[in-house]
Design a protein around this nucleic acid. Structure first.
Lengths: 341, 341
DNA sequence: GGTTAGCACTCATTAGAGAGGAGTGCTAAC
DNA sequence: GTTAGCACTCCTCTCTAATGAGTGCTAACC
């Protein structure tokens, strides 16, 4: 579609604009050395590129900036993954060498490393709890009417919820129920837990225990954990230093959105595996219409576990972020493999 | 110290400045009606008040604004608690009528109500877990080398931590240890748990179980929960709309600080009971040198549990926030009483 | 035909000048 | 003790002109 020269010019414009945040003029490209044409020639090409929708002009006498379509073309055809700098590798090495105590720490730290290295906002989607299997289920009574339901997975993750006991159920009933459930449900994937609770189990239970339907219903709420617990974020305040968010209103919208963990969780879970770049309005959330979201899924043993991502202005350093995410998502497999042992 | 007229003028200046965020001139005060003196007279008084350090002047030909000392005097001697508006009462009524499922929800919601009613940032310090007593302690093995230690309190709070088993300990040993610990430690306040673990218990345990010292040490880390889990915050982005934070650098510092939950936790736990106002540099944190922190502790049955607070610019509506916090902290006692039943 | 030099034109940005106005401090009169 | 009057300060706003980066177009060049 585009000639080689147009591709070179396009690359130059995107690169320059990413660096400077200023519209790029024909003369500055001509002076770069790698494109040995006069400003007039480049102007003609730029005019064509604008007509095709890859560039736009803030006003008649300004340089050009990439349009969303332009960024898309750049990401799809032009960007070259860079190699990581010594500093970057070092920061990651230090991080991966650290002794990790808790699962959650890994993801919080990954997010922290990402935002520090990029000066953008990082979002990490931790592994789905549901891919884990049930290790142990327990109800610990607090008083006559209520107790804490606790679910432990094989990964060491603990979910807990205060539940209210149904009327007239005895402590012995509860104990019996839990005992039966444990025997039946051990090592069952959490994902299937709900279905199993309803189909097989509850039928059998009613034979032994009075009023256990209510109890099972209460238990169900405990496994119904929120997706938002999987979200780890870091560097949200880095948005402040981006010139595209000088406007306080726009900034507030953005930060408010980032505070809505459930929305962010929904956004990240809806993204397919692999490395993905969503530019501007491709995200269909108004608040991040000026942002790009780059994500990379990480996996273990072929199974997709979660996603790490960077949210920055559309004018973000795609090359660097892409190579960083690529590298880090692969390292995570190693790290998690070590953890799960 | 101050004459009645000076106090009136002081009140007028603070009130006006809180409303307008603009330096207050002598003429505008004279026109208010409640102070029937000419601008010249008021100018003389203002000059005296400035000399005493209660007012300052951004530049020679501007009006006066309250100094930190001025705000301090205002808060200590001049402010009158307002009565809450119908709207405010209504929002709170709706909130308190809501069915609360989990303890944590209460505090998150209180924070949310506070920030929405005030348009400032709210911070809630939840009750100290340590004031609760141990209901149940358990170790659920994940594999040969590790397991999850779970602690349930009488309030339904659950703490959990992955621990590594000491070398050579058997499943039976672990079970025995947990059994002994439960018998010994049930209903012990968490605060005393650590001491009891070391003094009485571990001595007795060594008689029965091999290598249990290591296990106890691992358990200890589980009760060592972070203060930061007690912090609930809402409305941090409200800082953006305050004119005192037009400066992006200052704003970033502030938001970064608010993201450091441990620091915030330390700040709030260091504040004495009752209603407290900390103005500007009284907080000794650079990032909130232009902010005031108003806090009110809440209690249940005479025992202090935690704190609710509002962080806003020093130019904040003290009267409204004070009466709101006063009211809400008292309501919380009722709410928590109902919860603990 | 592709490339380039030249030139007129556009328009955001900046600096400077001047007017306006809010507010003060001081003095003198009430 | 209070107030009117007045000179003075200094911020803010607006207007203007200059600057300059960048464009589009045309005509010449290879």
């Amino acid at each position: 579609m585009l000639t080689e020269r147009q591709r070179m010019i396009m690359t130059a414009i995107v690169d320059d604009y990413i660096r400077s945040a200023e519209p790029v003029g024909s003369r500055s490209i001509s002076k770069r050395g790698d494109i040995a044409f006069s400003p007039a020639t480049i102007r003609n090409e730029m005019s064509d590129l604008e007509e095709m929708g890859y560039l736009e002009q803030p006003h008649t006498s300004a340089g050009r900036i990439p349009s969303n379509k332009g960024y898309r073309y750049y990401v799809d055809h032009l960007v070259k993954y860079g190699t990581l700098s010594g500093h970057e590798l070092n920061v990651m090495k230090v991080f991966f060498a650290e002794k990790i105590q808790e699962m959650e720490q890994i993801f919080q730290q990954i997010a922290s490393v990402l935002s520090h290295l990029t000066n953008y906002t990082s979002i990490v989607l931790g592994p789905e709890v549901f891919s884990a299997t049930l290790k142990h289920l327990q109800i610990i009574p607090l008083d006559e009417q209520s107790g804490v339901a606790i679910i432990v997975t094989n990964t060491g993750h603990v979910e807990n919820k205060v539940i209210r006991f149904p009327e007239g159920i005895t402590a012995a009933d509860i104990e019996k129920t839990v005992h039966i459930l444990n025997a039946k449900l051990k090592n069952v994937p959490l994902l299937q837990l709900r279905a199993r609770l309803y189909n097989e189990i509850s039928e059998e239970l009613t034979r032994y225990v009075n009023g256990c339907e209510e109890l099972v219903k209460a238990l169900e709420t405990a496994i119904d954990t929120d997706e938002q617990d999987r979200i780890y974020m870091s560097g949200t305040t880095n948005m402040l230093i981006q010139p595209e968010f000088k406007d306080v209103d726009k900034l507030k919208h953005l930060l408010d959105l980032l505070g809505e963990t459930p929305t962010i969780a929904r956004l990240l879970t809806s993204i397919p595996e692999g490395i993905q770049v969503r530019i501007g309005t491709e995200n269909s959330l108004d608040a991040i219409a000026d942002c790009s979201l780059i994500t990379a899924s990480y996996s273990l043993g072929g199974q997709n576990l979660g996603t790490i991502g960077i949210l920055g202005p559309t004018r973000m350093d795609y090359a660097r972020v892409l190579s960083l995410l690529d590298h880090l998502s692969k390292d995570m497999a190693v790290l998690l493999g070590r953890w799960y042992k």
